[in-house]
Nucleic acid binder design. Structure first.
Length: 208
DNA sequence: GACCAGGTCCTTG
DNA sequence: CAAGGACATGGT
């Protein structure tokens, strides 16, 4: 079967199962911060860190930029790789402010904005796409470990760019649609995939 | 105690 | 380009 057709079938099944979920509904500043913190980390720990940053009054791009390194490290310790993430976070926030803040960046066309984000140390494709899609409302599909895993389960493989392109061909070009689709993939993976691999690969549950 | 988590970067072959 | 290691805490 054509890979795009498999992706279509997958998305149909997931939409039928999970419906109109809302996925990451946060202000741009928190999306920027959360996108970095969630790297290789469970979301629950990211939420704790975001709450700590908020309590410290530095849960924004400007806040992280002006805060002491040690203060940020303390707040994000629970997400792991905390030294690395603090450095990445401060670098990213600094860069965003230098480019006119979220406000200024939002005037850039999506390709230019994506390049600007990718140019920051610690911002790879997934992080950039998360910020684009959830922070800036741009239709840029996010491919994460769950997406790759689920795609593998239905026989669709390829590079990050390949998978991203497949979803973007199949879905209507809309950030909300992309976000919900990605959210459903994650919901499904959390429900059926156990410790790194699909338990019994129950994709038939949603795919047929 | 072992293993894994919503990545990214750097180094090797 | 593919593979392997480093980065680190928290939950099962």
């Amino acid at each position: 079967m054509d890979p795009d057709e498999r992706v279509r079938a997958l998305l149909r099944g997931l939409a039928a199962r999970y419906g109109e979920i809302t996925w990451w509904d946060a202000c741009p500043d928190e999306v920027v911060i959360g996108a970095v913190l969630t790297q290789q980390t469970r979301w629950e720990n990211v939420e704790r860190a975001l709450a700590r940053l908020r309590e410290a009054g530095i849960g924004t791009v400007a806040g992280v930029d002006r805060a002491e390194t040690a203060t940020v490290e303390e707040a994000v310790r629970c997400t792991g790789f905390y030294r690395l993430k603090t450095a990445r976070l401060k670098g990213l926030c600094r860069r965003i402010l230098d480019m006119g803040g979220v406000e200024g960046l939002s005037r850039l066309p999506t390709p230019a904005l994506r390049e600007a984000l990718l140019a920051v140390r610690g911002v790879g494709e997934e992080t950039a796409d998360s910020i684009l899609c959830y922070g800036f409302g741009r239709p840029s599909f996010v491919v994460d470990a769950y997406t790759k895993r689920i795609c593998g389960c239905v026989g669709v493989t390829g590079s990050y760019t390949d998978l991203k392109a497949a979803f973007e061909r199949v879905l209507p070009e809309d950030a909300g649609e992309y976000g919900r689709a990605h959210g459903r993939v994650v919901e499904y993976a959390k429900e059926f995939c156990v410790s790194g691999r699909c338990d019994e690969c129950r994709m038939k549950t949603v795919c047929v």
